[in-house]
Amino acid sequence: MIEAQPQNQRAQRAGSWWPRLNRGALTWGRLTLTLHAFLMYLFLYGPILVLVVFSFTRDEFGVRWTGFTLEWYVRMFANDRLMGAAGNTLYVAFVSTVVSTILGTLLALAMERHRFRGRTGVDAVIYLPVVIPEIAMAVSLLAFSSLALEFIRVVTGEVVRRSLVTVIIGHIAFSISFVTIVVRASLKHFDRRLEEAARDLGANSWQTFWRITFPMILPGILGGALLAFTLSLDNFIISLFLSGPGTSLLPVEVYNKVRRAVTPEINAISTLMLAFSITLVVLSQLVQRRR
């Protein structure tokens, strides 16, 4: 009730300008704005739509509509290499999401709940992976991994190659920051008196965390986890630099194919990847709105 109030006010406020323009028929300004918005959504979704449509064309170059077929999807599913890459991608995404969600949530709790010396430094370290170009992170991880693998060879005598493990380590390194940022946002609005109230009513700190704090920041944690999952699924640059021989990931496969030519098979994979991501976002929005 109290929470709902500012929202209503804001709606009224934003609305106070809108209906007036509405009543004065269509002003040029408003018409332009609407037209522009329409074109922008066309701009954003047109290419995606084209991609989806051309994943069903018979044309073997995948750029012309010559009739409907599901052949490319059939071929894609029959392609062991692609399916293997898809499996790898899901595996990497799952593991890196679990680890980065736990580490990121802990970091978020530390940053929002504690004041300590060096806090701004820690803050900078957390934000840095988000703001530097991904390629900088990718090459540094590549250089570091070659050093580390060399080190392992010298110490243990065993030859270790880059593999899904190195990819997972890299994905976690950049996902932690995103999870931390999302969870911190949900902790910002958290009223710490709720925890005091729980202590006051006889809950120890463990019970307080699991019964009060955790359920209340759960949407934030889920949001962070979902973001980490999608980022990992879609990640291409770090995967490209860190994956080893024989451990291919789906975006890297797509990249290697795309560099050669457009094929309807890529259209089909791309369509499925898009559909998967969009389903995830819409699901997450639904889950968050319900709360």
Binding site: Y41, L44, D234, F236, P251, V254, Y255, V262, L274, S277
Partner: peptide
């Protein structure tokens, strides 16, 4: 609708322009 492209594969979206 603006958010969705952010969550979808950048590579794939760029590729769509090739077509």
């Amino acid at each position: 609708l603006v958010l969705i492209p952010f969550w979808t594969n950048f590579l794939v979206r760029i590729y769509a322009w090739q077509i």
